[in-house]
């Protein structure tokens, strides 16, 4: 049999909305019999840090797609960017996204990552960023391995790579 299809995701962002793409696509890939590797680097490390993984935020500044309709208001208009910097807006947007995700039966990040690992996904943390941020193995959820960028390249030979 020929080698199995392999997809590798690089998560470089740690906002809530940037955590889900790799997790959802990775889960779909596993469900299709595809091997999955996820490499977390820079702010993406927050996704696998025990302290932050279930506290990721969605800051509305810079997201043009934020609309009042999403907040459950009857008029669906864009939310002015200046509103995004008001105190509490990030918390409101975050709570809103969490609620929507829950309605779609999307599990919280920590549970989702455990499901991915149970289904065979490999999770790696970027060594250079780990060192830069002064983190250690203990900061990460079980099953995460700290590897260098070079190791990641070796481990994903022939894989399709998606940068998020």
């Amino acid at each position: 049999m020929s080698e199995n299809r392999h997809m590798a995701f690089i998560c470089s962002k740690g906002n809530l909305d940037m955590a889900y793409p790799a997790l959802i696509m990775g889960w779909a890939a596993l469900g299709n019999g595809v091997d999955v590797t996820i490499f977390f680097t820079f702010w993406g490390l927050d996704i696998i840090r025990k302290k932050t993984m279930d506290r990721l935020k969605l800051p509305p500044v810079g997201i043009a797609g934020m609309r009042t309709g999403m907040m459950g208001l009857p008029v669906d208009i864009g939310i002015p960017q200046i509103m995004g910097v008001l105190p509490g807006m990030t918390e409101v947007a975050t709570a809103l996204m969490r609620k929507k995700m829950e309605e779609l039966e999307v599990p919280p990040i920590s549970e989702f990552l455990q499901m991915l690992q149970d289904a065979g996904a490999k999770l790696y943390a970027c060594k250079m960023t780990v060192d830069m941020m002064g983190l250690t193995q203990d900061d990460f959820m079980d099953g995460v391995e700290i590897v260098t960028a070079g190791d990641f390249i070796d481990k994903t030979e022939g894989a399709q790579i998606i940068f998020i």
Partner: peptide, 22 residues
């Protein structure tokens, strides 16, 4: 898959062993 896992109480890991590759 998640509905199956939650509904049957069979872990994701075991489901992948029972029915490999999806």
């Amino acid at each position: 898959l998640r509905q199956i896992s939650v509904g049957t109480g069979i872990s994701t890991k075991e489901l992948f062993q029972l029915f490999p590759k999806g």
